[in-house]
């Protein structure tokens, strides 16, 4: 393909990324390093600060909210369980919104919308958790993660202190993110990488692989050229980025296992319908 076409594709995907994803890496890094004019994020580091920070988190979408038990007379452990579940539900609401954002981004990839509709569904079903996992990386550092559009910083130690299996949910993402962030990709690189992930021709059940592989090939060329231009001093960056796709699949497999455990162990758990659709029969 012509270099000009590849550059134009990179520009198009970057613009779509900026349009569809509200918290960019540039903004997240500014918040994490304190280089922003906005207020510093509210820090959640224990149960007390979680309760205080709850008002910042959008947690009104799930019917479970209306079913909170009366707190009077409940023991501290019971209260803690409720807070953890409420937090989990608000995470689910945000994840469902994020799936919608990723869908809009996918639709903006040239050629995606003319693929067989069933294949579009399959690409999203298998790609979206990988995409969301990779998009967490810019929000994280070794000590914690931004949540709620960057308004809150939740510490890694606090997430590790939650009861099992909640406590197992985020640690692999921190381990992945700390390594991934060392590649120092920016938002324009991320936009192309996300498109490459979405256009994976080896997802189970695809009906027509060839056009998907052709689209991915083109985006891969664009990513390779873009990384060479954008990071002229970073040797083998293209290969290093592609290697991360293997780690991502392991990350998703682990995530699905934790959700399975949660479904078995938490009677109060109600999984968001959109996330249920994605998780059903996945791996």
């Amino acid at each position: 393909p012509e270099a000009a076409d590849l550059r134009s594709l990179a520009k198009h995907l970057y613009e779509s990324y900026l349009k569809n994803f509200p918290l960019t890496k540039a903004k997240a890094r500014a918040i994490l390093s304190g280089k922003t004019n906005d207020n510093a994020p509210f820090v959640i580091h224990d149960m007390k600060s979680l309760l205080e920070g709850e008002q910042f988190i959008n947690c009104c979408h799930l019917p479970h909210q209306g079913q909170q038990r009366e707190s009077t007379g409940a023991t501290l452990t019971e209260l803690q369980r409720e807070v953890e579940l409420r937090f989990f539900h608000s995470c689910q609401s945000r994840s469902a919104e994020a799936v919608s954002e990723v869908t809009e981004f996918a639709k903006s990839i040239p050629g995606f919308s003319i693929l067989d509709l069933n294949d579009q569904v399959t690409l999203l079903k298998y790609g979206v958790i990988e995409v969301l996992s990779i998009m967490m990386a810019p929000l994280m550092n070794k000590d914690g993660t931004l949540i709620s559009y960057g308004q809150i910083f939740m510490t890694r130690e606090f997430l590790k202190s939650l009861r099992k299996p909640f406590s197992d949910m985020m640690e692999p993402k921190f381990e992945f993110s700390v390594k991934f962030n060392m590649l120092e990709l920016d938002d324009s690189d991320m936009a192309l990488f996300l498109a490459v992930i979405i256009l994976s021709g080896d997802r189970p059940g695809l009906l027509n692989v060839k056009p998907i592989e052709e689209l991915q090939e083109n985006v891969l060329h664009s990513l390779e050229l873009h990384l060479k231009t954008n990071h002229p001093d970073s040797l083998h960056l293209f290969a290093k980025v592609l290697q991360k796709m293997t780690d991502l699949r392991q990350l998703v497999t682990h995530h699905v296992q934790v959700i399975q455990l949660l479904k078995e162990s938490e009677v109060d758990l109600c999984l968001h319908p959109l996330l249920q659709e994605i998780m059903r029969d996945l791996y």
Binding site: E104, L117, L274
Partner: peptide
């Protein structure tokens, strides 16, 4: 199709506001 009706809906709607 029934199994993934929300994903279908998200894909077929031209803009993002979908009742999630």
């Amino acid at each position: 199709k029934e199994k993934h009706k929300i994903l279908h809906r998200l894909l077929q709607n031209s803009t993002s506001p979908v009742d999630l």
